[in-house]
Design a protein around this nucleic acid. Sequence first.
DNA 1: TTGAAAGCGGTACCAA
DNA 2: TTGGTACCGCTTTCAA
Lengths: 339, 339
Amino acid sequence: MTVRMKDLAKDLNLSVVTISKVLRNHSDISEKTRERVLQRMRELNFRPNLTARALVTGRTSMMGLIVPDLVHPFFGQIAKSLARTLRKKGYGLVISSAEEDIALERHEIEHLIARRVDALVIASGEESGEMLAVLEQQKIPYVLVDRQVAGLQANFVGVDDREVGLLATQHLIQQGCRRVAHLRGPETSPARGRIQGYGQALQRHGLTMRDAYVVAARSSGDRAEECGFEAMQKLLQSRPRPDGVFCFNDPLAVGALKAAQEAGLEVPRDLAVIGCGNMLYADMLRIPLSSIDQDTGSIGENAGKLVLSLVEAAAPPKPRSVLVTPRVVERMSSNRLGR
Amino acid sequence: MTVRMKDLAKDLNLSVVTISKVLRNHSDISEKTRERVLQRMRELNFRPNLTARALVTGRTSMMGLIVPDLVHPFFGQIAKSLARTLRKKGYGLVISSAEEDIALERHEIEHLIARRVDALVIASGEESGEMLAVLEQQKIPYVLVDRQVAGLQANFVGVDDREVGLLATQHLIQQGCRRVAHLRGPETSPARGRIQGYGQALQRHGLTMRDAYVVAARSSGDRAEECGFEAMQKLLQSRPRPDGVFCFNDPLAVGALKAAQEAGLEVPRDLAVIGCGNMLYADMLRIPLSSIDQDTGSIGENAGKLVLSLVEAAAPPKPRSVLVTPRVVERMSSNRLGR
DNA sequence: TTGAAAGCGGTACCAA
DNA sequence: TTGGTACCGCTTTCAA
């Protein structure tokens, strides 16, 4: 059926070994033989069986990627730039969407291990890092993206979340907001970092952090906007009412915008809003949404480079953290200075 | 390092064959032995090497998916539901983003073949179907999604594009439009189908199709909106001016909306707009966008079922086409009746 | 410069 | 019910 090295060998009156060497550009092959072999390979459309190669070399040239949700453009973007970076070095990428389900995430990681991927890139929904212990133990290199796991020193690529919180909050303050609220995300490292930056920004400007101005919201999945809507309603009952809100991500911010408008507030005059993620179409909303750009392309690329360095290293190097720089994208929802 | 069947066998004083049989639930193993083996497997966290298995069985239990662009939520959605369907049957999914580049698409298909995926699901950017000939020849089952290839009878899952065009155009007509224009997409099967439906709808209502009312636009990639913008500007110069426009996809429609507003028209009163794809956030735009929903989840699921049936079939069955039913989602951009 | 032999970690077939 | 042996398609080592 499909042509194998053995077939080529017989066809050309050579040994399988010679074919194999030509294929991998070994030096100890005469130019004449090499040409003859390459020629025939092309003619017969020969493709070496990568599973066979993997079995003997112990390396599949495949990496695995686990994301919580492929539909979220944030992860789509990461997958894309990661795949591109790996492809340049001849690596393939197996992508698994864990659908925000921890049990499934574990299952998928197990599956990828069984497939003998050379390394994993994981945007984990898991809090505990239990699964990661398995990876450590089996000495399978991995890189965490977006979310870190508490108490674990691992290779990580993501945005500097403290900086995100700082930038967003500072931006609102610079726009003249004095009562800045925060719609915080779930208990994960990004949410913790961002709220930390939020606090720092307030402090630097001599503003006090008030508990009533910080409301938690479930930020993921399809219902994120609703959550943002409800959380914002709650926030609007505080007195004095906030005049600015920094939202953990863009879907929450969209919900918040809706709640503000429904309450008869004018954005950004009565309430300035900024989100995070700079999602596609953010500038096409009823009120174009200001946001913090996380440079997902660069996250994917850096994760790729990092994971490549891991598989190519002889001994496992000391875990590294690569932090990508966030950037304010100002649009109408926070523009109170009318510039 | 990692534990193999050989290790288990030695450990339990059994043969490798027995271990293998237990693993695959062979019947001819005593209950006692089976338990003993399973027990030890769990203890040692044994995972069979799937590359080894693939080599001997000739099947990898992996499918490949090629999409033009992973960031496009349309394809993200398909990838997700496809992966879910396959996972239930123990299949993994390798996803490749061809980045709208035909040469790359071919390269990636070659790569997946070399990895010996059991079958492919392809949303191809290729017009000619040249690559597909290779698949046919190598007898690798494949399913086309979203786009068909002209002159090729292949397994296909997608929306009924003629119906899409019909629904969208009819909807505009029902909203009172009499001069319905069309922003058509590139020369692919969906664009052809939709324009056909567009023509049929006009005809059914006794309206004539005017060349000046049909403008082509590059619909993919990051610049889609701009293209929609420009195409709409062109359209608005026709006299009499159209009072409704059916756009090949949502990004084009967004650009069209912008052009209309910039020209001082009021949507939907002066111009009703409907897109296609029902993208996320369509209802959060300045003017919420009416659209045709293509039920991507169902496309992915059906593609999964179809491709599973292919790999499980003894002989290659006759190519089947599965058409998913589109559905109008009415929002403000086309609501001229004020309901 | 070329190739014979020994595996890689499993599965299939058939004998014990 | 259990296991010996050959083999999947390729790479590695070492001898010719």
